[in-house]
Computed example of a mutant assay.
Amino acid sequence: MKADPQLIAAFAPTGTLRASINVGNRVLAGIKPDAAQPYGVSVDLSVALAAHLGVPVELLVVDAAAKSVQAVAEEHADVGFFAIDPLREVDIAFTAAYVLIEGSYLVRDDSSITRNDQVDRLNNRIAVGEGSAYDLYLTRELRHASLVRVATSAEVVATFLQHNLEVAASVRQQLQYDVKPGLRVLDGRFMIIRQAMGIPKCRGEAATNFLRDFVEEMKRSGFVEQALIRHGVFGASVAPGTLDDEPKIRNPPP
Rank of each mutant, 00 (worst) to 15 (best):
Q226E: 15
S112M: 06
Q195G: 06
G54L: 03
M191C: 15
F234R: 03
A48D: 15
D78N: 15
A3D: 00
V185K: 03
S237W: 09
A64G: 05
F81Q: 02
G15R: 09
L161W: 03
L7F: 04
F190Q: 14
S20Y: 09
P33C: 15
R230M: 10
D135T: 02
L175T: 00
S153K: 06
E75G: 04
V47W: 09
G40P: 07
T139G: 11
L211E: 01
H52V: 13
Y137C: 13
N25M: 10
G54R: 00
F94I: 05
G129P: 12
Q162M: 08
E102H: 03
M197S: 09
F223W: 02
A19G: 09
E102L: 08
L228K: 01
D135V: 02
S132T: 06
L243T: 11
Q176V: 03
A96Q: 14
V119R: 11
F94M: 10
V215T: 05
D34T: 02
F81I: 01
A77M: 04
A227W: 04
A36E: 10
R143C: 11
V167H: 08
D178A: 04
A97G: 13
R230T: 09
V62K: 03
A97H: 08
V128P: 09
F81T: 02
V148S: 14
R184N: 14
Q6K: 11
D44H: 04
A10I: 06
R189A: 15
A29M: 09
Y39E: 15
I113E: 08
A83V: 07
T159G: 09
R115K: 09
A154G: 10
V148K: 14
V171S: 13
A97N: 09
A64K: 01
E166F: 00
G80D: 03
G241Y: 08
L138M: 13
L60K: 00
G103V: 01
L49Y: 08
I8C: 07
T152L: 05
S68Q: 06
V61A: 00
Y177I: 00
D135N: 13
S153M: 11
S146M: 10
F160E: 01
D187T: 11
D109C: 08
R88L: 13
D85T: 12
L147Y: 06
D135C: 10
D117K: 05
V179W: 06
R88M: 12
V62A: 03
P56Y: 02
G15F: 05
H76I: 07
A19R: 11
N124C: 07
M191H: 13
D91K: 15
A93H: 15
L49A: 07
R115D: 12
M197W: 07
T95N: 10
